[in-house]
Amino acid sequence: MENHRAVSLFVEFLQIEKNCSKLTIEHYLKDIKHFETFMKQQKINTFAAVSYGDIRVYLTKLHKEQYARATVSRKISCMRSLFKFLMREKIVERNDFTLAPLPKKEQLLPNFLYEEELKKLFTISDLTKPMGQRDQAILELFYATGIRVSECSNLSLRDIDFHIGTILVLGKGNKERFVPFGSFAQSSLQNYVNDGRKKLMKQNENAHEFLFVNYRGERLSSRGMRTILNKMIENAALTIQISPHVLRHTFATHMLNAGADLRGVQEMLGHAHLSSTQIYTHVTKDRLQTVYKNFHPRA
């Protein structure tokens, strides 16, 4: 009961003081629950009884279970935040998680698609059917804006400004940003909103403003969007890996390779720190060849 009360207070802190999104809080709770399971296995009854030795055992367990470095770092950071709060509330006396070293980040380049790989995807949706119009609009919007899947799922009709070609996105930490979209996305969105969405909404007696809906006229979930992209890959008989996040990587990579300003891309992606955007500055082989041929005196 003591641990349950401590976690409840922490959740209130995240909601009220930190203004964290529902999804962020869910991730915190998932990591805390994972550590509480470990505590039960080790017969540790309260957070106050956790020692640095226990934390070392927990880290060893994570290593044996082959968790990715990023996952281990996230779990440690989560518990650091929890214990820092519990110290403030005088529920625990120390925060030994601050002594736990964070694993070095893996320097992995983000997956992205070449333009040739994308072309076939844009031709497979049946634009005479409501679902096909919706799927095409989702694909075009992901590639045109680089928004996150959760952000896309929560878009409403009033968030789109067709006149100037922008969407209003509610990102992490409930931060709003305007993101522009191009003519292809605009055409697909208008076709879907004016035709396909209206037909799909006839299946739902409860009117709502969510932009993307399923066959029952209900809000299309993040999982539903991932399923749609997987189905498109299957129908196109492609072997590439695709997800909303791969399309986000692709958007950023193509923008920067074409000469876009790094801070502009940062703003469109909704990154709080420029370092998060810099991972997309990797250069493709095609881009390297073009630069070499254009600028080397003896190319």
Rank of each mutant, 00 (worst) to 15 (best):
R69K: 06
E36W: 00
L229T: 08
I124V: 15
K129E: 14
K175W: 08
L99M: 15
R248C: 10
A272C: 07
K199N: 12
L139H: 05
L139A: 05
L229K: 07
L23E: 14
G270T: 05
E140Q: 13
A237D: 14
K199L: 15
N257A: 03
N45K: 13
F184G: 02
F212D: 02
A137E: 01
D126T: 09
V11M: 08
K199W: 05
H245F: 07
L109M: 05
T239K: 09
I32Q: 02
L121N: 00
K33P: 01
T281P: 00
S243W: 05
A185F: 04
V213G: 01
V283P: 00
S51L: 13
T250A: 05
T145P: 12
E2L: 13
P244M: 10
F13V: 07
L86E: 04
F122W: 00
S187V: 10
Q241E: 08
R74C: 02
V265T: 02
K104W: 00
S73A: 15
L9S: 12
K175V: 11
T145V: 13
Q190M: 14
N230F: 03
A6K: 06
F13T: 07
M1R: 07
F85G: 02
K43G: 08
K285T: 14
R69E: 03
F251A: 06
E115T: 11
N191I: 07
L157A: 06
A236Y: 01
N95Y: 07
E151K: 07
F295E: 02
N206I: 15
A185V: 09
L59I: 13
N154S: 15
V179H: 05
P110Y: 01
S187Q: 14
T71V: 01
Y52A: 14
K90E: 13
E93Q: 13
A100Y: 01
L62Q: 04
L220Y: 01
V213L: 03
T281G: 01
D286G: 14
R197H: 12
T37R: 07
E12C: 11
N204P: 09
N194E: 11
F162P: 10
F184P: 00
L127M: 14
V92Y: 00
M1G: 12
E115M: 10
N174A: 07
A236R: 03
F122R: 00
T123A: 11
P101Y: 04
Q42D: 08
L189D: 08
S150C: 15
G173R: 07
F142L: 15
L220A: 02
M79H: 15
S77G: 11
V7Y: 05
L229E: 05
F212A: 03
E176A: 06
S187K: 14
L168C: 11
E93P: 03
T166E: 11
I233D: 02
G173W: 09
A299H: 05
S73R: 02
E205P: 15
K61C: 06
A236W: 01
